[in-house]
Computed example of a mutant assay.
Amino acid sequence: VLNVRKMFYNIQIMQELLKAHNEAYALAESNYNNVKKSFDLGMVSQYDLLRAELAFSATRPDVLRVENLLETSMLGLKLMLGLPSSREIRLQGELGYRLLQLERVKLLQSSLKNRSELLQLQMQKQKIDNLLKITWAQYIPNFSLVANYSYQSDYLKFNSSNWDDYFNISLGVSFPIFSGLKRSAQVGEMRVMKKIMDLNLKQLSDATRLEVESGYRTINQEYENIQLGLKNVESAKEGVRIAELNYREGMITILELNSSYNELTRAKVNYLQALYNYNIAIAELEKITGIDINGGVE
């Protein structure tokens, strides 16, 4: 389930990235057309035209790369769901975010209680404990007690004087004196397996605590990155608007204008990366703890 969620989130991010790169492509194309018109009128140099053309050409590979990654991710999702590659699927929902009030202690307790890998190890440990008890039982003697009572007569005369009571009680004790050290070897093997299982259980418990702590911090950190990313996108958009005005007035060079376009694309990519990391961290923490944190797709 976690892998399917990750693939689903990856596709959604790829779709948003494709939009961002298409917007960058359209912006670079519009800028190139404007510079070309100005060049034809003798208002800008050929160098500016070449720089605008190079910037426009440089955006196309990013669009093609993301399109290819998106198509590959869609095929991967179909494979996970057992669908034929020719089957058309449409994804609904979008990656969201909100401020979560997470309790670290509760998350840790739930993870140690509900994590499937820990539960499996605990079951295996219980099985080994039972096997060790059975192995130890081979050192205990086997006792058997048999009692028999009969009431019979030796004659064919059925009167009370001819009937007698018979009692038979036997007690048996069996204990293997020598078994070729088989029992001690089995006990030693069970003890080693128990120590290994205890060590594995402790290591996984420690790793679970670390993963919960890391996931808790990642969610809070990426939420802050999302807020910062949104602010940076708005600032970059305003920077592009100002840069275009200044370029028309001859106050900045074509390089500075292209730089403002790149900053806008970079701000969008950083925002989407933070949004993806946020939702992935929630999905992983939900798997470990077994708690519906109510994040991810809204």
Score class of each variant (00 low, 15 high):
Gly96Gln: 14
Asn114Gly: 06
Gly180Phe: 00
Gln101Leu: 10
Gly93Met: 11
Leu272Ile: 00
Asn68Tyr: 14
Ala207Gln: 06
Ile254Met: 09
Ile169Asp: 15
Arg87Ala: 06
Val66Asn: 04
Gln126Arg: 14
Met80Glu: 12
Glu263Gly: 09
Leu156Met: 07
Glu53Phe: 08
Arg90Gln: 03
Ala274Gln: 12
Ser116Cys: 02
Ala243Gln: 00
Lys287Gln: 14
Leu18Val: 07
Glu298Val: 08
Glu103Met: 01
Lys78Thr: 05
Asn225Trp: 12
Phe143Ser: 11
Leu230Met: 09
Gln273Tyr: 10
Met190Thr: 15
Gly180Met: 00
Met190Ile: 15
Asn258Asp: 03
Lys106Arg: 13
Val269Tyr: 06
Tyr149Arg: 10
Leu107Phe: 06
Gln138Ala: 04
Gln46Leu: 02
Asp292Lys: 04
Gln109Ile: 12
Glu238Gln: 15
Leu112Ala: 13
Lys202Tyr: 13
Ile226Arg: 11
Phe143Leu: 13
Leu2Ser: 13
Tyr47Ser: 12
Ala207Tyr: 04
Tyr149Lys: 10
Leu83Cys: 07
Ser160Asn: 12
Ile252Thr: 05
Ser184Glu: 08
Glu94Asn: 13
Leu204Ala: 10
Leu118His: 01
Glu234Lys: 13
Glu189Val: 01
Gly172Ser: 10
Val297His: 05
Thr289Phe: 15
Leu54His: 02
Thr265Gln: 09
Ile128Glu: 10
Trp163Asn: 09
Met123Leu: 14
Phe8Gly: 09
Asp165Tyr: 09
Arg115Ala: 04
Gln124Gly: 05
